[in-house]
Design a protein around this nucleic acid. Structure first.
Lengths: 109, 109
DNA sequence: AATATATATCGCAATATTACGATACATATT
DNA sequence: AATATGTATCGTAATATTGCGATATATATT
């Protein structure tokens, strides 16, 4: 039926999948890289550098905010977005642990 | 229009996004964890532990194979799946570099 | 050769994602 | 108060993903 069956997975697996979504679209990767390199940003700056409509960029920012990996201080008409350090650290731990847990023993040539 | 505009992003950003997709669904996270812990596996074993239909599991395996993060030796009626060490290392580098590049300086409270 | 076994693929339905123009909203500026 | 500015949200269209039953495929077993 097309609905992800989150209930059959562990909370950890669902969380990793959600954090993974932050990196699973090139626009979001680009946004995160920009936030990292500039320390702080507003949506407008990002729109100028991404060849995407303002509404589209805003939507990606909303998704990143939902995941929790970025945070924004609403200060209309501007918003200051930046990486959420604790969630970023959570992602670093989660992916680090998972990616480091593989010890290269292949059975398939 | 709903089509991801891959052409406006760098090859690196698109690749990270693709690797991110491997981790962006709990079923694929679960599959990767199983392949890591058992060193080798076949689809049937996975179907038994995931409450998903065989066709669905096969589809997730196909996606992981497309990304390149797993490899399979086709040996009908069985297939031996395992992690692709070089692509896994690529993911480790890519995510490691990106996740380590953030130095915690927040501007937003 | 018929059957059993294990996996892949097809076809479909439901839902999610991506993208964007238009518009709403909230503050600054005049 | 009217206008300008920057961002969010709405509505909509197109495409992608998720899931599964049915079926195809390829070998092993009888």
């Amino acid at each position: 039926m097309g609905v992800t069956k989150t209930e059959i997975f562990t909370a950890e697996q669902n969380r990793i999948a959600d954090l993974g979504k932050a990196f699973a679209h090139p626009a979001r990767v680009a946004i995160l890289q920009m936030l990292i390199s500039r320390k702080a940003c507003v949506c407008g700056d990002l729109v100028g550098e991404l060849s995407l409509a303002q509404a589209t960029v805003s939507q990606h920012l909303k998704e990143l905010k939902r995941i929790g990996i970025i945070q924004g201080e609403i200060n209309p008409p501007r918003v200051c977005y930046c990486i959420n350090p604790s969630v970023w650290e959570e992602a670093r731990q989660a992916f680090g642990t998972m990616l480091d847990s593989f010890i290269s023993i292949t059975c398939c040539p």
